[in-house]
């Protein structure tokens, strides 16, 4: 893959500029954490990045984008919809293929979600739903992951596991998150957003607590 580049990018909402102009280059192999107060523009920045290129990117949006009436299996499988024909997908919707069940099962096992394989997504707890969205992105595969608060509803050990899985599978990740400690440990680069602009952009090992306090 090539680098992700934002060049004087900005986002308008209802006539006012809410983000930008922003210049940003994310090189392959970087693990970026987007931090900052809620409403600072993290999600907007993610959607700007998503607009750049779509083929090899997976996304975990903040609202997760689950289909509540479908089972966990189907929600996870949806990561690979574009790779199969419509007919194949339709059959799999009605009578799942064994091959796909095994593949999805492997991903769910990794996230400790196996018992919920056939539960409808609408019946899950907040944390479980988040892990289904994570599983979908893992199942989807690709080089780049964009994720918006993928661990906000998970407890310590679980969020560790999820972050581990995401950063291992994807060579490049851009993840918006609240937990600064987690951000520093799993990201190679920290980008702080404040009032719609980049207020901080450093390698994570050289970020001080003072730098971060200024953001919040």
């Amino acid at each position: 893959m090539s680098a992700l580049i934002l060049d004087q990018a900005y986002a308008n909402f209802g006539g006012t500029t809410v983000l930008g102009p922003i210049d940003l280059i994310i090189k392959p192999g970087e693990h970026v954490a987007l931090v900052g107060r809620s409403g600072a523009g993290k999600s907007t920045l993610l959607s700007l990045l998503l607009d750049r290129r779509r083929r090899d990117m997976a996304l975990i949006p903040q609202n997760l984008g689950l289909v509540d009436t479908l089972s966990v299996f189907h929600n996870v499988y949806m990561g690979q919809l574009p790779m199969h024909s419509g007919a194949y997908n339709l059959i799999n919707l009605i009578r799942p293929f064994r091959r796909q069940i095994l593949a999805v099962t492997a991903v769910l096992e990794q996230l400790d979600m196996l018992p919920t394989l056939w539960t409808r997504a609408g019946e899950l707890s907040g944390g479980q739903r988040q892990r289904v969205a994570v599983a979908r992105s893992l199942f989807q595969g690709g080089d780049v992951l964009l994720a918006d608060e993928p661990v906000s509803a998970l407890d310590g050990p679980r969020s560790e596991a999820v972050m581990q899985a995401l950063t291992t599978q994807y060579t490049t990740t851009i993840i918006a998150m609240h937990d600064l400690d987690l951000a520093r440990r799993y990201a190679s680069r920290l980008i702080g957003i404040q009032n719609g602009t980049i207020a901080l952009d450093l390698p994570s090992h050289s970020v001080s607590s003072h730098d971060l306090d200024a953001l919040y």
Binding site: S47, L50, R54, M57, A58, L59, P61, N63, L64, G65, V67, D68, T69, L70, H74, M78, L81, P82, G86, N89, L90, L93
Partner: peptide, 21 residues
């Protein structure tokens, strides 16, 4: 409906994203 920004299109969107909802 608000689908996720990277949701599939066409027939796949019809059977997986929209009709189930």
């Amino acid at each position: 409906l608000k689908l996720r920004p990277d949701a599939v299109g066409g027939f796949n969107r019809y059977i997986y994203e929209v009709v189930p909802r």
